[in-house]
Computed example of a mutant assay.
Amino acid sequence: MIIKVLGPGCANCKKLQKNVEVAVKELKLDASIEKVTDFKEITKYGVMSTPALVVDDEVKVAGKVAKPDEIKEHLQ
């Protein structure tokens, strides 16, 4: 499983990444977490507001900081 956090590196992006790490740890998943800061790459996903969560190349959340429990729903 490949999880990507899309965003320029703002506080909300960092919070989403931490929440993703918590969710992956709690679910004991074997997943790689990548940070994508390049705007050209972000727009390839059709994301217009960050932060965004992408799981296996599918946008799951955009424009908000998802809590660990919400993220877990997208990872199961």
Rank of each mutant, 00 (worst) to 15 (best):
D30T: 14
S32L: 13
G7D: 01
A66I: 03
D38Q: 06
D69H: 00
C13E: 04
I71L: 01
M1C: 08
F39R: 14
L29A: 12
K28D: 14
P68G: 12
D56Y: 10
G46N: 13
K64V: 08
K44N: 13
E58M: 12
E41L: 09
M48K: 11
C13V: 10
I42Q: 02
I3H: 06
V61Y: 04
K44A: 14
E41C: 06
V65D: 01
V47M: 04
N12F: 13
S32D: 14
L53D: 09
A31H: 07
D56E: 15
K72I: 10
A66R: 00
K60W: 10
A66Q: 05
S32R: 15
G63Y: 00
V22M: 05
T50G: 03
A66H: 04
K64T: 13
I3E: 02
G7I: 08
M48N: 03
K15V: 11
I42H: 02
C10P: 02
Q76S: 14
K35G: 07
L29I: 13
A52H: 06
V5G: 06
K72H: 03
K15H: 07
D38I: 12
Q17D: 09
G9H: 08
D57M: 07
F39I: 15
K67E: 14
V24Q: 02
K35E: 15
E73Y: 05
D56W: 11
E58Q: 15
A62C: 09
C10Q: 01
A23Q: 02
A31L: 06
H74F: 08
K44P: 03
T50K: 01
E41A: 14
N19E: 02
G7C: 07
V22P: 00
I42T: 09
E34M: 14
V36H: 02
M48V: 14
E73V: 10
Y45C: 00
V5C: 08
N12K: 15
V36E: 12
I2V: 12
E34F: 04
K40L: 12
M1F: 09
I3C: 02
Q76M: 12
C13H: 06
H74D: 06
K44Q: 14
S49P: 05
K35D: 12
V36Y: 04
V24S: 02
L75V: 11
V65Y: 03
K14G: 07
Q17S: 09
D30Y: 04
C10E: 00
C10M: 10
K44V: 08
E70P: 04
A66F: 01
E21Y: 07
G63K: 01
L16H: 03
G46P: 06
V65F: 05
L29R: 13
K18T: 13
E21T: 09
V54N: 00
E26M: 10
T43N: 12
V22Y: 04
N19C: 07
A66T: 04
K64M: 11
D30S: 15
A52Y: 11
V59R: 00
S49Y: 08
D69C: 01
K14M: 12
K72T: 09
I33Y: 07
H74C: 03
V24R: 01
V22Q: 05
I33C: 03
E34K: 00
K25N: 10
A23H: 01
C10D: 03
D30R: 15
K28V: 09
E21S: 11
G7P: 02
V5F: 11
V55S: 10
K25T: 11
K40N: 15
K28S: 14
C10H: 04
